[in-house]
Write a protein that binds this DNA or RNA. Structure first.
Lengths: 333, 333
DNA sequence: CTGAAAGCGCTTACAG
DNA sequence: CTGAAAGCGCTTACAG
């Protein structure tokens, strides 16, 4: 069987390779008759253009490296796959290829891509430096890098936390505690800072014992909840830095006979579907993870096509999803 | 600034492009002196070979399409990212590029890849047919396709379920129930079938009420658990098709004052780290998800290099991880 | 051990 | 609207 390349198609369709190339690339100036014949030939011969040749000849390509740090955090979380999904769907629309790279942050051939998208940045700083140094387009997701000249798309965790406090205050709560996420992550840190800031803005006391440090893991949530419930000045509400942890908080509370939300209001973070239909449907903060992936890729593609000048820094808004894990205090007291 | 291509390197290093190519590709027959000079020049000029040109010229490439179905199941599960991680790490070692494709199962240009790896197959059957038809290498993960001539790497869910039953029986349990996963998935179905088969082999009665249908979601686990605990002939043990569900089972039981494991033994599935350190550390089945990704890619690369003849079907073994959610009945009765 | 030259499969001015 | 031809940046027999 003869190799089917563009020449084979041209020969069979009795046109030049130029014309074949034109119909492949949707160039308008082809007679209807020729176009029809070429198209038909392509289908009959099962011809597929060789992408390497196309890229080499045209000098353009739309290959984006997707860098996923190997650190365990990424792989245990609901969020990573949502972000990847967002990137993947945008890639289809923008017609760019995604080169997946699970990495320890060392090896990566920047030459094979036109741009790089980091799904979070932990442990990959070195690689980011190199990418920036070599002038390859780049965007960092889920981490707002203030000082580096690089596109970022992250979540506005502070505002989200502030909104949670506002919401609880509006329900009449004053004794509000928080169980933090891993403070080594920006998300964890920002949620805590937003919480503290909002409490202070409301003239509310932030007791040390009301700030319990978690790490996004269930055991840490359990321990933190036990401490909070054991306090003699028990909080009436608690803002937990992730839905998974919040679920554990609810479980511990219920097990101890503390009713949720009657005696303890709980707010989570993520809008993880797992939390929507629990025993106590969880009030939580929705973060636009798909959008983060999508917008990140859009930014990158813009930059790659030379349109982007200065790096763009995006802080995506969140949304408070009210369900049934919070209660107005004055109804209860 | 002049373009740095292989010619620029050759010119600067005062050798032919052939020699430069040789050192790039680690061909032995280059004098030590020349190699040194070329290497030094490459570094100084920050030269990176153009992958498209390399592929076109050599006629070889190691591009593997990673197909991730857009169906929600994949994106809510712990397992997908683990599998991807396995693929990603193997790819680095095998020096192949991973082309990520999140798909609805329709569009995918098979021409741009040498092989395709499906992370699960739901909703992608059509695409698989096309891939097979076009003679592109393929491997399907997490789904054992008996009849199709395609490589598969899946988990031996039946044997795993049987082993769970054996284990519980050895502890003295006879009234064993199960909460199934989504029976539309092969994993869910096989775990149930393995359970039933093992029960029958042990001459144990499988009451209808002891088979509660779940869907891997928490609410389904909760409902199922409530039914089981409400039975007048309550089971002493329950095999739950996922760790997340098993955690919910434990929560419901504890909330109802049913002690775990004293009054109810629970076995999960996944070895999800989330389940290891709960209030009741969960006895569970570990499945080698990373390995599944790794072996899948290895199989594919073998096939791509022409070594694979007949499709290989792998059923990966599992391991029972004994923790503290099961109890010997005779100690209690 | 080394290099000149053909060729990989496309795209794209350019001329018509 | 169409095509001949150069060129994209490499690799690889082949000859030496």
């Amino acid at each position: 069987m003869r190799k089917v390349d563009i020449a084979a198609v041209a020969r069979t369709a009795r046109v030049s390779t130029t014309t074949v190339s034109r119909v492949i690339n949707d160039v308008a100036t082809v007679s209807e008759e020729n176009r029809r014949r070429v198209l038909e030939t392509i289908k009959r011969l099962k011809y597929h253009p060789n992408p390497s040749a196309q890229r080499l000849a045209s000098g353009t390509s739309n290959i984006v490296g997707v860098i996923i740090p190997r650190f365990e955090g990424v792989f245990h979380s609901y969020y990573a796959l949502q972000v990847i999904k967002g990137i993947g769907m945008a890639a289809e629309r923008l017609r760019c290829d995604l080169l997946l790279h699970v990495t320890d942050g060392k090896h990566f051939n920047t030459a094979s891509v036109n741009g790089v998208i980091f799904v979070d940045i932990n442990d990959c700083e070195e690689l980011l430096d190199r990418v920036l140094d070599e002038g390859v387009g780049a965007v960092v997701l889920n981490h707002y890098l203030e000082d580096l000249p690089v596109n970022c798309v992250a979540i506005d965790n502070r505002t989200a936390a502030e909104r949670v406090v506002d919401y609880l205050v509006r329900l009449g709560h004053r004794d509000i505690a928080t169980i933090t996420g891993d403070l080594k992550t920006q998300a964890g840190l920002d949620r805590l800072e937003g919480f503290v800031k909002a409490m202070k803005a409301r003239q509310l006391l932030v007791k040390d014992s009301y700030i319990q440090h978690g790490d996004f893991g269930l055991p840490s949530a359990r321990a933190a909840t036990e401490v909070l419930l054991g306090l003699k000045d028990r909080p009436t509400a608690v803002f937990v830095a992730s839905d998974e942890m919040a679920l554990e908080t609810i479980n511990v509370a219920l097990a101890k006979g503390v009713r949720v939300p009657e005696e303890l209001s709980v707010v989570g973070f993520d809008d993880n579907p797992i939390a929507a239909h629990g025993r106590v449907p969880l009030t939580t903060v929705r973060q636009p993870l798909n959008d983060m992936g999508r917008q990140g890729l859009e930014l990158l593609v813009q930059q790659m096509s030379g349109k982007g000048r200065n790096p763009t820094k995006l802080l995506l808004p969140t949304e408070l999803i009210e369900r049934q894990s919070c209660r107005q205090t004055w109804l209860e007291r």
